[in-house]
Each structure stands twice: as C-alpha cells, then as structure tokens.
Design a binder for these strands. Structure first.
Length: 557
RNA sequence: UGGCUGAUGGUGUAAUGGUAACACAGGACAUUUUGGUUGUCUCGUUCAAGGUUCGAGUCCUUGUCGGCCAACCA
C-alpha cells in the first residue's frame, strides 16, 4: 500500500459537534446563527473571533447568519457605530443574510411583556435602584420580595401602559419578571425587564421612553428570527436559565444559547469601555489608530482579512480561560504578506555610502525581483548611483563576532547591484560616522557576477540621488505588560510610551505611487502599509510587523 | 456560607475508554543575493489523591486551584 493519505480532517470544535449532532438527529434542516453587536463602539479582534465563528458555521453547515444590532440602550448607541460595524464585517469577508435590529422588535417585545403581566409573571416595581439592590440579597444570601410584587394584573397592566406613555420620570419604575427572590441564580431574582429612559434612540427616535433590558430582548430577538444556535461568551452562562425561562413562559420559538470562552490577547485590551477611553482621552488617534486592536485599526496597520481569519481559525473555540500570544497574530500576517506583498527597498535610518570608483554622473539600471515567492510578480528596475544610503545598523566600524554586514575591509552585496568593500569612514566633530567610503567590485553585478566572490551579507540600499523621503510610522505594542487586566491600578498606567515612533526614511521612487492600504515588504525591515495620510509628495507608511529577525535575537545574547 | 463553570507542553487547540497529536514560541543544522522564506531535526504535557477497568487525559469519588454571578449595561 503506497498511498493511504486520507487528508486528516480537522476535528470539530465543541459547537460544531453540537450542530452536527443536531443536524444528524434531524432536529434542524438548516441552522441559523447571528452576530449581535451593540452599536456602541468599534469592532475589535475579539469580535473577529465571534464573526468567524458565527459566519463560519453557516459556511460549513447549511443555513445562514444574520447581523443583528442589539440596540436596546439608546444612551450609548449611535449610527456611526452601525456603519463601521457593517463595513468591518464586509471587510473581513463575510456577508449577512438579514440586517436586523432589536429595536425593530420593540412593539413585539412590548406585547410579550403584556403577556407576562397577564400570566401574573411580571409586575411593575416602584422601588428605587438602591432598594432593588438591597432586596436582591447576595450570592450566598436569598433576596426578599419587593413590597410591590403582589400588585394585581390590572394594576400592573395600567402602570406599565403609563410607563410606556411617558407618565413617569426615568428611574421611577421598572417592569420585573416575577420568578423567585431566593433563587440561587441571582439573575432569576425577579430580573428587570423594562426601564424608563426618556432618551433619543438612533433608530426609533422619541417613539419610546421605555426600553427592554438585554435579557428581555436578546433571547426574544433570537426567537423571532428562529435562530437555532445563539452563540455568546462565557459570562452569559448564568443568563441562559433566564433565556430559557422567558422563551418557555412566552411559548415562542425555542432558540438555544451556547457559550464559548472569550479570546484574550496578551499586551492588549479589548474592553470596549477601555478602548473608548483610549480614544476619548486621545491616548491614540481614533478608533482606527494602527495601535488599536479594533478591526479598523488592524486594517490601517496593514493586517489582511485572510490573516485575521487564519488567526481566528488557529486559536479555535473552547470553554476554558485563555491568554493568546499576540505573536501568533503577527505570525499569521507575516505568512500571508510574505506570499503576496511586493518587495521594495527603503532605508529607515540612513547612512551615506560613497562608491569612490563609481562614475559621478552615472545612474545604472539594476533589476530586482518584486516577490521571490511569486515569479509572476516580475522584476523591477532600480537605479544605482555613486552615492547611496544604507541602514546605519548595517555598518560597524569595529564589528562584533558573527557580524557579516559592512565593516572596514569587509565586502557585502548590495541587493540587486554590486559587491562593495568598505575602505574608510568620515566622521563629524562628535566622532559620529557621517559617510562610509567604499569601492565596488567590477563584474560583480547581480545576475552577471563573474568574480566568484562569495559574500555573506546582502544589504538593502537606496540611491541618494533618486530616493524619495517617506514618513514611516513604527508601531510597537500599546501596552507594556502581558495581562493588562490583572495589573493593579489604572490600566492607562501601563501604556507603552514608545508605542509610536515617527521617522523619515528614504525609499525607492516606485513607493511614491503606493495606494492607501497597499502592503509592501521593505526588504529586511518588515511589512509596511501605505497610510491614507500620505500623498505622492510625502508618502506615509505604517509598519505592520517586523520580519522575523534571528540576528537581533542572537545579538541580544 | 451559595450557584454556575473550567483545569492537557511556555501559549492555543486536538485525542469521543486503546501509541497523548497539530500549530505558535524556544533551540540546532541545511538552503538562501532578505540574518526573510523554505526544509530537516529538537525541546517539552494530562491539577492532586484514590477508585472502576485488561487498559483512564477521557468514567466515578474526594480534594486543590482558576473564572463568572449581587448594572434600571450588553
């Protein structure tokens, strides 16, 4: 038997297993999932995981996925967020079946509330929020009944109607489910279903002054949409009991809730509250600042949809607490960009090199591949001149052992051009090296080298005559500690002060035509994406990620 | 003092009572006109103690440790 390679099928995650079992049991012919963001902020890498899960499920199994905005809290929500969320999901490469809003169901939800009142399962409570909290008890002590718990159905109906009609001020009354104030699950101790908020809603305007709480909107919306598998994160586990209770009492379509563990990334915060704070207090330049873990930030940073999807796929789905190394995300984008991005040369920290035996006026055409991973990307022309820039770190007057870049008397190859040898250095009054004088080796031109000389180092370079200045934004992680949430004190104390370093470098002229969003590999330096702030006169590039750098690792030791 | 939930290399995820695997990270070598890429090799793991079983990461018991739950947020 020579070939027995049945492609190892990737094992299913626990949610896929549930779905497969449901499908096989004939419980459903197709499945319906939903991605339910609240439009109160921008989507981040954590949402990406949920998006890939929910949309991925209905790519793998028959069915579809809805986009539903969980817009039940008018004071925090805005259409700006709605638009950005839609844009980000599409950019990620997913399309929803229906665009829906919890606010579209306000009438239905109101009807559901009336039903509960008639069944004697809901009552209007006049208690203040403090009183409600006091009577709630604690996880280990039972709560006590509200004095308003035993109002008649008729009285409740009337009061709830008045709540709806705007008779009462904010906070003066709530509608509560009548369940059990001694329940071991705190959420079952007569949860609030409706609260009064005289606030403008981004979609329903001033039509309503009462708004349903999450627990009275989410499961009901799932049910209205006949969502089969309602997937959320672990902190909603205690809500499931209430989710099921409401569906049962209302006698509506039984959607089911399944929970997975939120993905945590080290050196990163993904709390919307904290991200909002970073934006509002201008620690970053907006939601799409390339240091932000938002989808829009990652996009501007140069991350590709494929790399983010690959990342989500690799980290998987489970129910245990986790802390994922942000290095994996970087690996994913390197892997993607390595295959697709065009190579260009840019010197970020220039040191002038004069090739003393090269003619002053000559601009010699050299060829270099656009992408060694993709022959079809072809070659491009670059101009070689007597004066060029190399990276300052690529020259050492007194080289350390194993350093095989440029040093006095040493030879290196200039990528796509000639082999040069360093002869002497020019220094300023501070002893700082300002120029390196070299000679080039005749007949050593790239592709036509007949010298037989073997050099270990190959450097990137830019012609001093033809190079164009570019602004380069070097990003580093936004936080200097691995687990920001577990640190004492204010999370902002752990912001990395060096998360952004703006420099001016010299790049080959082709980079002037980079379109915003386009990604390049700057040879030996990393992947860089053109930023919309740039122009033909002054291109701007964001460093997505550095290349792997074994030399830097070795040099550290 | 309660309820819910979880525990597999440094990290993440598999193994569905039958050889603990895959990826990332780390290390070594080879290849390379990017100290990139690629290839080969290497490193190291079932929370603990009992029990059931021919056989336990998986089942049972007890314990230990972690996470979540007392917003008119979602």
């Amino acid at each position: 038997m020579i070939t027995e390679e049945k492609k190892e099928e990737k094992s299913l995650n626990f949610i896929e297993e549930i779905i497969e079992a449901d499908l096989q049991a004939g419980k459903y012919k197709e499945i319906i999932t939903r991605f339910p963001p609240e439009p109160n902020g921008y989507l981040h890498i954590g949402h990406a995981s949920s998006i890939c899960l929910n949309f991925g499920l209905t790519k793998k199994f028959p069915g579809y996925t809805n986009l539903r905005f969980d817009d039940t809290n008018p004071t925090t929500e805005d259409t700006e967020y709605v638009e950005s969320i839609k844009n980000d999901i599409r950019w990620m490469g997913f399309e929803w079946e229906n665009e829906l809003y919890a606010s579209d169901y306000f009438d239905t939800l109101y009807g559901y509330a009336i039903q509960l009142i008639h069944k004697g399962l809901a009552y209007v409570d006049d208690s203040s929020s403090e009183e409600i909290a006091t009577l709630k008890g604690t996880p280990s002590e039972p709560g006590r009944n509200s004095p308003f718990r035993d109002r008649s159905v008729e009285e409740n109906r009337l009061l709830f109607e008045q709540m709806k009609n705007g008779t009462f001020p904010d906070g003066s009354r709530t509608l509560r489910a009548k369940i059990d104030m001694a329940h071991t699950n705190m959420l079952m101790r007569d949860p609030i279903l409706y609260r009064i908020k005289h606030a403008h809603h981004h979609r329903t305007g001033n039509n309503w002054c009462i708004y349903p709480m999450y627990d009275f909107a989410h499961g009901q919306s799932d049910s209205i949409e006949t969502v089969t598998h309602s997937i959320c994160t672990l902190e909603f586990v205690p809500h499931r009991e209430l989710y099921d209770w409401l569906i049962e009492q209302l006698g509506i379509y039984p959607s089911h809730q399944y929970e997975f563990a939120r993905r945590n990334l080290n050196y990163t915060v993904t709390s919307k509250r904290k991200l909002l704070q970073l934006v509002q207090e201008k620690h970053v330049n907006g939601w799409d600042d390339p240091r932000m873990p938002t989808i829009s930030g990652l996009r501007r940073r140069g991350y590709t949809p494929a790399s983010i999807r690959d990342f989500c796929d690799r980290i998987g789905v489970a129910r245990r607490e986790n802390m994922i190394d942000v290095g994996l995300l970087e690996f994913c984008v390197r892997e993607d960009l390595n295959k697709t991005s065009l190579r260009r040369m840019a010197v970020l920290d220039p040191l002038k090199v004069v090739i003393t035996n090269f003619p002053e006026e000559l601009s010699e055409t050299c060829l270099s591949e656009n992408n060694p991973e993709d022959i079809a990307a072809g070659m491009r022309e670059i101009l070689f001149t007597r004066e060029i820039f190399i990276e300052r770190e690529d020259f050492m007057e007194v080289p350390s052992k194993k350093y095989f870049r440029l040093a006095p008397g040493k030879m290196v190859r200039l990528k796509g051009a000639y082999i040069i040898q360093a002869e002497s250095v020019v220094k300023d009054e501070n002893g700082e090296i300002t120029e390196v004088h070299c000679t080039y080796v005749e007949n050593s031109k790239s592709g036509q080298d007949t010298t037989g000389i073997n050099v270990k180092g190959t450097l990137h370079w830019v012609s001093a005559k033809h190079g164009v200045p570019v602004e380069v934004r070097l990003y580093d992680r936004l936080f200097s500690v691995e687990n920001v949430a577990s640190e004492e004190g204010d999370f902002k104390d752990y912001i990395n002060p060096d998360s952004l370093n703006i420099i001016t470098g010299y790049a080959e002229p082709a980079l002037r035509d980079a379109k915003p969003g386009e990604s390049f590999q700057f040879l030996r330096k990393g992947y860089f994406a053109a930023d919309p702030d740039g122009s033909t006169e002054k291109p701007v590039f964001n460093r997505t990620v550095t290349l792997r750098d074994n030399w830097a690792k070795a040099a550290e030791k």
